[in-house]
C-alpha cells in the first residue's frame, strides 16, 4: 500500500461545511461575546477617567477643548485596538478551527469516496491518510475491513476463475446450457477482477 500524495488546498478546506462551520460558529460566538464584554468594561473604565478629567477642566475652557480632543482620540484608539484584537482573536480561532475540523472532515471525505466505490461494487486500493490527519484509528479500521473484504472476494474470484479454467479444460460444451452457465461464470469473474483491480 504505497502512498499517493495529496496536497492540501485552501479552497478545499471546507469539505463538510455543516460539520466544520457548526463548531466554528459556536467558538466564534463565544469568543465574540467574551471579547465584547471585556472590551465594554475597559471602555467604560477609560470613559470614567475621561469624564472625570472633563469635569475638572470645566474651569479652564481654553485648555479643555484640546485636552478633551486628545482624550477622545485616545478613547477611539482604545476602541479600535480592542475591536482589532477581538476580531484578530476570533479570526485566528476560526482559522484554526477550520484547519482542525478539516483534518477530521478530510479523512471522512476520503472514506466517503471509498464507500461510494464499495456501494458500486468496486474494491480498489486504499491509500493511507496524509500526515497530520485525524481519525487515524478509524481509518485503520476501515482500511483493515477493506483489505479483508477485498481479500475474500479476490480469493473467491480466483477460485471461480480456476474452476472455470478447469471446466473448460474438462471439455464442457460451450454451445449448450452448461456452456452458457460457464460463460456467465467467466463474465462474473472478469467483472470481479475489474472491480478488485
Amino acid at each position: 500500500m504505497s502512498k499517493k500524495k495529496h496536497n492540501r488546498k485552501i479552497s478545499n478546506y471546507l469539505i463538510d461545511k455543516k460539520l466544520q462551520l457548526r463548531y466554528v460558529i459556536f467558538v466564534t460566538t463565544l469568543s465574540a461575546l467574551i471579547c465584547g464584554m471585556l472590551g465594554f468594561l475597559i471602555w467604560q473604565q477609560a470613559d470614567v477617567a475621561t469624564n472625570i478629567i472633563r469635569e475638572q477642566l470645566a474651569d479652564a475652557p481654553d485648555m479643555a477643548d484640546e485636552v478633551i480632543r486628545s482624550l477622545k482620540s485616545e478613547d477611539q484608539n482604545l476602541i479600535f485596538t480592542m475591536v482589532a484584537s477581538g476580531v484578530g482573536l476570533i479570526v485566528l480561532l476560526s482559522l484554526l478551527l477550520v484547519v482542525m475540523t478539516h483534518k477530521v472532515a478530510g479523512p471522512l471525505f476520503k472514506v466517503t469516496r471509498y464507500l461510494d466505490k464499495m456501494r458500486d461494487g468496486r474494491l480498489d486500493t486504499v491509500w493511507p491518510l496524509r500526515k497530520g490527519d485525524m481519525l487515524q484509528n478509524f481509518y485503520l479500521k476501515f482500511s483493515a475491513m477493506h483489505t479483508s473484504v477485498k481479500a475474500r472476494h479476490v480469493e473467491t474470484n480466483e477460485t471461480l476463475k480456476n474452476f472455470v479454467a478447469l471446466a473448460e479444460a474438462a471439455g464442457i460444451d460451450a454451445s449448450g446450457d452448461q456452456g452458457h452457465r460457464l460463460d456467465e461464470l467467466r463474465k462474473h469473474c472478469e467483472q470481479r477482477s475489474e472491480a478488485l483491480a
Binding site: D116, M118, R119, H153, F163, L185
Partner: peptide, 23 residues
C-alpha cells in the same frame, strides 16, 4: 449504502459459487 453494496457483492459471490457447484 456501501454496506449494502458489499453485502450484494457477497450475495452475488454466494450465488455464483452455488452456480459453479451446481454446474
Amino acid at each position: 449504502d456501501a454496506h449494502a453494496g458489499v453485502t450484494t457483492m457477497q450475495e452475488q459471490d454466494r450465488d455464483r459459487l452455488k452456480d459453479a457447484i451446481k454446474l
